[in-house]
Design a protein around this nucleic acid. Sequence first.
DNA 1: TGACTAAATGTTTACGAAAACATTTTATGA
DNA 2: TCATAAAATGTTTTCGTAAACATTTAGTCA
Lengths: 347, 347
Amino acid sequence: MVDKAEMRPTMEDVAAAAGVSQMTVSRVMRGTGQTSDKVRKRVQDAARLLGYVPNRLATALRDETAPLIAVVLPTLGNRVFSEVLNGVQTTLAGSGVQPVFGVTEYSAEREEELVRDLLSWRPRGIILPGLEHSQATRATIRASGVRVAEVMDIDGDPISVAFGMSQIAAGRCTAQHMLSKGYRRFGYIGSQGGKDLRALKRLEGFRAAIREAGAQIVTQLIRPEPSSMTVGRRATAEVLAQAHPPQAIYYSNDDLAAGGIMHCLSEGIAIPSDVALAGFNGLPFLEALPVRLTTVETPRLQMGVQAALHLIGQETDQDGNQDRDPERHSTGRRVDLGFQLIDGDTC
Amino acid sequence: MVDKAEMRPTMEDVAAAAGVSQMTVSRVMRGTGQTSDKVRKRVQDAARLLGYVPNRLATALRDETAPLIAVVLPTLGNRVFSEVLNGVQTTLAGSGVQPVFGVTEYSAEREEELVRDLLSWRPRGIILPGLEHSQATRATIRASGVRVAEVMDIDGDPISVAFGMSQIAAGRCTAQHMLSKGYRRFGYIGSQGGKDLRALKRLEGFRAAIREAGAQIVTQLIRPEPSSMTVGRRATAEVLAQAHPPQAIYYSNDDLAAGGIMHCLSEGIAIPSDVALAGFNGLPFLEALPVRLTTVETPRLQMGVQAALHLIGQETDQDGNQDRDPERHSTGRRVDLGFQLIDGDTC
DNA sequence: TGACTAAATGTTTACGAAAACATTTTATGA
DNA sequence: TCATAAAATGTTTTCGTAAACATTTAGTCA
C-alpha cells in the first residue's frame, strides 16, 4: 500500500486495468482516432477508478511546447497589473492553457532572469510589460522563437506585437484639457522613484504640451515609494504647503490623485477652485469618491485579453510551427487600444 | 537557416559543439559531479554561443515533479487575493520555482476542473483558498499525493495544513467591539451574492455575538455583485433610507465599508453618531481616507508567504518523496496567523 | 615502472505521452 | 464462403534530461 499507492497512475496503468494498450488509452482520452464504444467505456471507467490525471509534462516534452502563457509583470502591488493579469486569465480560462508568471519590480536585470526562467517551460507565448527591454532579454526571446506580445505601451518599437496605448498622447491629452480650463502653473506628483517608464512617458507628453502653451510646471515631486493613496495624500500636502503652490496637479496615477482628493477634503481645500487635480487609469473605485476625479481611462483588461488571444489564437501557421513570418510578427505591429479622457469635477 | 535556426539547441547540441558527451554537459550545467576546468569552460562557452536554454519539461518529466506551485484563487477582482498571490510570488522569486494559477470565481465545479488542470503539471504543491472543497476535488488531490496548503481560513478541517485566521472569531470580535460601544441595532452589508464562504463565516460569528448580547441585526443586504466601493456606497444609501435604519453597519469588507464612508461624507451623515461602520481586511488605502475605518486587519501577505514556504520548504522527507507522513500532513494542522482589530473613528 | 586508486568522462535507460507505422478484427459484397 | 476494405487496436520510437552504471585517463606510491 505504501509504495504502490504513492505512484500516480499513468496511461500504462489505466491500459493494464482496462486490458488494452497504452496507445488505446491515449486515443480514448483525447477522443481521436477510432475506438469502439465498449473499449472506450472500459478505459474511461478504469481511468476514473484509478484517478488518472494526465501528465502534461510528457505531452509538452513530446510536442516541444507547453500549453502555458508566460506573463511578466512589473509588480502585483498595483491594481492595474492585476487587472491585466485578470484579462489574461479570463481569456485563457477553459482553453486548457495556464498562465505562469513572475514579477520584475521594475528591474531590467530581474526581467532578464525571469524571462529566461519562464522560457525554460517552452510556453506558447510570453507577455511583457512595455517596450523597453534589455538587449540580453531581446536576444533570449529572439533565440527561443517564442511568440511575444507586449502590453501597456505603443510608444516605441515592439519586438513583435504591442497591445496598448500611447502614454505620451495620454499625458499630452491631459495637459491640453487642463490648459483649456485656464490653468497655467502646474505641479506633478509621481512615485516609484521614476522607475515606471510609462509614467515618465506620460510626463514627457504632459510637459511638452505645457511648454508649447507657454505655461509651466512649477513643482515636480517624485516619491520613491510605490503608488498609494497615502503617498499621494502626503505628497499633495507637501506640494500645497509650498510658498507658491501650483494651480493644478497632475498625478502619475489615480491612487496618488485620490490621496490628493482626500487631503483636500480633510483640509477643506476647494477642488478645483483652490487646486485642480488630474489622475490616470480610470480605476473603478473613483466612482465612489465624493468628488469625481478627472482622469484618463485605460483599457487595462483589454490589453491582457488581446495579448492572450493573440498568443493562443489561430495565428499559428499551417505547419503548426511558431510563426516567424516577418510580415506578421517580426515587423513591430502596434495595436492601439486607445484611452478616454474622463472629464470629472476636479479641473 | 530556416529549418536549422528554428531548433532550440539541446544538451546534445552543446555537447557536439564542445566535443563531449551530453552527460558531461548536464554535469557542467548543474555543477554536480567531477568536471575538469578545461572541459567546463569549453562547455559553458558552447552553451552561451548556442544560446542554450535548459528544457525544464524534460527535467520535470524525469524528476516526476515540476518546480511549480499551483495557486487557486477565488478571483483576481479582489485586492486581497492579489496580495496573497503577491506573497506567494515574492517567496518563490529567485528559488527557481514559478507560480501557475487559475481563478474559480467562487464556483466549486470550476475549482474541481481547475485543480485537475493544475495538477497535470505535477507541481511541487498546491495552494487552495479556504477549507471547503468538493468531494471530487479532495479525492483528486489525495490521489495525486501533492502537498497542499490552504489559506485564508482555519475554521474547519484542513486537507493538510491551513495558514489563516478564524473568520468566525473575526466576526465575533467585531461584534463585541461594536456592542461595547453601546450599539444595539445592526445592519449587515455583503456582496458576491453570498458565494464568499469566508464572509458568511464572519457573519455567522458576528450574528452569534449579537444574539448572545440580546441585540439584533435589523437589516441584512447581500448584493449579487462583487465587492467595490461603488456597490458599498449604493447599498449603504439603500439601508439608511429605510424607515428604521440600523445604528451600526457591519460590512463584509473594507471596499464596501469605504463606499459607506463616501456616502456619509457626501450626504453629511455624521460618523459614528448618525451611523457607525465597521469593515474587514485592513487594506492600506484606508489610511488615506478622511475618516479612519474601524476594521479587522488580516495577514493576507503572510498567508501567501507561509503557504509557499511550507510547500517549497525543507519539509520533504529524507528520500525526497512527497511527505505523506500522517503526523505532519494528513492530520489537519491549523496555523493561526491571527488578526487585529483596528479601532478607528467609525464606531 | 607497475599496481592501484581517484578523477573524469562516457553509455544506457527511464520518465509519460503520442506520432508513425504495423497488425488484427470486423464488416461488406460478390 | 472468401476476398477486400475499413475499423479497431497494437508496437516502436521520440522528445531532453539525469540517475545508475561502465569505462577511460590521470595521479600516487612502493
